[in-house]
């Protein structure tokens, strides 16, 4: 697989798996309003994943559903950050905040890429991300003095670094105000991914090749 397809799949897998994880809050978020907003953001991320899979599918001669659902868990290229099955709101919001900051750095780099198609898609995604960032920043500011949120951010920090290529990490560290440390790198997978994959692909696997 060429470098472009690998890059597209890395980002698409991040967005799909985080979208899936965040959608696990649908119906049980802390307030009704946040439930609606959080579910909507999760859906947007899955929409971004689809657009990226479509680009990768052209490159690989397949389709976006096959890329999203027909690979083995070990073939996914997502960062461990998005796989974690986090149970409390402090960690969930800490992950959203860290992911949005990392994604901002990554999208900004892609928008300036020589690959016009990829740069165009990055710009389109960036416009929708404005609202995700607004949401994450509001929460981060509101919980800044909350010990549970601060320890969740510190705990997840090595995972957040793993979302980005080495050369982009200092940028993220500066934005978040933490130091670059050893990261949980892309390519490692947590046991949580296989569990998620089992649920996520269950219907698709039940009748292979069916058109829904």
């Amino acid at each position: 697989m060429n470098e472009r397809a690998q890059l597209l799949l890395s980002i698409a897998d991040d967005e799909l798996i985080l979208g899936w994880r965040d959608s696990e809050w649908t119906g049980i978020a802390p307030t009704l309003e946040e439930d609606v907003a959080f579910s909507s953001i999760a859906q947007n991320e899955i929409g971004h994943a689809r657009a990226l899979y479509e680009l990768a599918a052209q490159e690989l001669g397949t389709d976006s559903d096959a890329l999203a659902f027909d690979r083995d868990p070990g073939e996914y290229r997502c960062a461990p950050l998005v796989e974690l099955h986090l149970l409390d709101w402090a960690h969930t919001i800490a992950r959203r905040y860290l992911y949005e900051e990392a994604d901002r750095v990554r999208i900004n780099a892609l928008m300036h890429s020589d690959d016009a198609e990829l740069a165009g898609l990055a710009a389109k995604i960036d416009r929708e991300e404005t609202y995700h960032r607004m949401h994450a920043e509001l929460w981060a500011a509101r919980l800044a003095a909350e010990p549970r949120f601060r320890s969740a951010v510190e705990e997840l920090w090595p995972f957040a670094l793993g979302v980005l290529e080495q050369e982009l990490r200092p940028d993220l560290a500066q934005r978040v105000g933490l130091d670059v440390v050893a990261a949980h790198e892309r390519g490692e997978h947590t046991p949580e991914l296989a569990e998620l994959w089992n649920v996520m692909t269950e219907v698709r696997r039940s009748i292979p090749g069916a058109q829904w």
Binding site: E33, E34, V36, A37, S40, I41, Y131, M134, H135, L138, R142
Partner: peptide, 10 residues
């Protein structure tokens, strides 16, 4: 600010 974010989504 939260009302703004939430109302947009809702």
């Amino acid at each position: 600010a939260f009302a703004d974010a939430w109302a947009r989504e809702q």
